[in-house]
Design a binder for these strands. Structure first.
Lengths: 211, 211
DNA sequence: TCACAAAATGAACAAACGTTCAGTCAAAGT
DNA sequence: ACTTTGACTGAACGTTTGTTCATTTTGTGA
């Protein structure tokens, strides 16, 4: 969706469409039955495409799974980048935007989150999965640390207060994803946002009382 | 280990030992290759037991996997309960004990955590896994909420401050597990504890300034 | 309209899988 | 000492798995 290669012939379009359909079917299969149950037969049945298609488009089933992981990670990155860019330069607004984006139903939904967790479970087994699903700890963490620095008054107490706050917020969001994944029915999106805001509020209140 | 049925004959002992060895081998296999790679052949090779043992002891491979999940959940519960009981009745000490227990290498180690994540990934697929790995949200959350209530001065601002703090801390710990799982090499246990303590400190500082 | 190229198909295949069970062995009871 | 019991073994079986490839279908350029 982000890159529109022009002048596509009908055949190329249908090829890309089949590819996308396979990725989507594989994702659905992972969601329904886990990585263990995401078999060629399942994916074929969901996609209504022929059995040979997977190996034709992706050489192997494992490559298709990898493509699902990449697709998911790219969608997450794009979503977050867009949200941050739209937030302007005020760190408080950026933080709110980051919370909202991370809790957005387009990202935090039971289908996608369950797929995230499936890949994460095998991350240390498969290095290729690892690089895909590690997107959270890179750009995201750095950005959040910058925001925390801007929001923490100086002098800090303790001296590494911004770093502590940043890693706390990363973990908080990560944990909220886990709560959602383990119990999507009892999950309240608005409540989760309030929890984030409450923690942020407490973290970035005036810190000079102790010193 | 908790229930010692006495007067075990040698044959019963060896039976129990084989059972335990199968569970351990299955856990190792899940750790090494994920649930997908935890095959009968793998478990057999790791345990050095015969092929038929799994179905003899557990009727099916799936039951063995379930036994692994139960074993893990029981170990976690026992560990936490013992830690809380040893902490006395002071809520602040209880909170510290809870943090320490949740970050303890006996619980938070790359082997066990990776197995947790494997089962969690398929929790919504397999209801039997679900009940095992949902241990965190039951007793644990209730206990933490009690501690938060005791630590939050009244009147609260906002009124649900203890509930917010409790769910924040649950998610924080959950997220720290995730950080550990995704990147066990860059993980600093002491730093994680400091993050928890810092957040707790900020959460339970005097809250009356806003009202 | 025709010949070419590339996408799509699905029957066929070998490998790997979980499970079974007749047979073996050692411990327990008499 | 003998019999019985139950844990253990591992070859064999049927199923399911991912992959291949000869064939068919369909869009493209001459």
């Amino acid at each position: 969706m982000t890159t529109d290669t022009p002048l596509k012939k009908a055949r190329d379009l249908s090829k890309a469409q089949s590819r996308a359909r396979l990725i989507d079917a594989a994702a659905t299969s992972i969601h329904r039955h886990g990585l263990r149950g995401a078999t060629i037969g399942e994916i074929q049945a969901i996609s209504n495409l022929s059995r040979g298609m997977i190996n034709l488009h992706f050489k192997s089933k494992e490559n298709l799974l990898l493509a699902v992981a990449e697709h998911l990670a790219n969608a997450y990155d794009a979503h977050m980048e867009q949200a941050i860019n739209a937030a302007g330069s005020d760190p408080k607004a950026q933080l709110l935007a980051l919370f909202r984006a991370d809790l957005d139903p387009n990202i935090l939904n039971s289908r996608d989150v369950s797929i995230w967790f499936s890949f994460r479970a095998e991350g240390h087994t498969n290095p290729q999965f690892q690089t895909c699903i590690g997107t959270r700890s890179g750009h995201f963490a750095r950005l959040l640390k910058g925001i925390c620095k801007a929001l923490t008054p100086i002098p800090h107490h303790p001296v590494n207060a911004p770093a502590l706050a940043a890693s706390a917020l990363v973990s908080l969001l990560e944990g909220i994803w886990t709560d959602f994944h383990l119990n999507p029915d009892n999950f309240n999106r608005e409540e989760a946002l309030q929890t984030c805001l409450y923690v942020a509020d407490r973290l970035f209140a005036d810190q000079l009382q102790g010193q």
